[in-house]
């Protein structure tokens, strides 16, 4: 039987959740035995080459490229998981949500003391900025949510193993407490 295929992406996130995946330490060797990675920063595969079983999404959507990428993952993954605060609720990037996007752009590109060409970037190659940062589940259907900033390595590990083996997920308090 072929191994289950996993893909991962970091949208409007900080890669902290991916770091947390690596925090499973030597279990990563066990993981490689259990699964095969497809599109992911971990193996640097840029495009989907086959249908995947599990997609792990870090970060919410702050621009059109995030949206496109997220929709691509939904299309190519049987199970899609929001990993971490940003994917689930927007996280730190969503701190701009109370401020009109025009003001944000002006502050960053026109009024900022360290810029001198005074232009809001407008090249068609650039992703378009969304009016606010959206959690992933507002754009596509998300099957599971792994909370944390970042979620602990143990939580990610347990969740993946549970999904792969069909066993029930064990969530001791230490793994999901955040205070």
């Amino acid at each position: 039987m072929s191994k289950p295929v996993v893909a991962t992406a970091s949208l409007a996130g900080c890669f902290g959740c991916h770091m947390s995946i690596l925090d499973i330490d030597d279990r990563i060797l066990k993981l490689i035995e259990l699964v095969e990675f497809n599109k992911s920063p971990i193996d640097d595969i840029k495009t989907f080459t086959k249908q995947c079983d599990i997609g792990l999404i870090e970060g919410g959507c702050c621009n059109s490229e995030n949206v496109e990428n997220l929709k691509l993952f939904r299309k190519n993954c049987k199970i899609l998981i929001s990993v971490g605060e940003c994917a689930i609720m927007g996280g730190l990037p969503a701190m701009r949500n109370g401020i009109p996007v025009k003001e944000c752009l002006e502050e960053a590109y026109l009024k900022c003391p360290t810029v001198d060409d005074n232009i809001i970037p407008n090249d068609d190659e650039l992703p378009m900025i969304l009016d606010r940062v959206y959690p992933c589940h507002e754009i596509v259907k998300i099957d599971y949510f792994l909370p944390g900033c970042p979620p602990r390595a143990d939580l990610i590990w347990e969740a993946l193993v549970a999904l792969l083996t069909g066993k029930e997920l064990e969530l001791p308090y230490e793994v999901v407490k955040f205070d």
Partner: peptide, 9 residues
């Protein structure tokens, strides 16, 4: 969702 930012840019 992109209307305002595109207008600004």
């Amino acid at each position: 969702a992109v209307e305002e930012s595109c207008k600004a840019a």
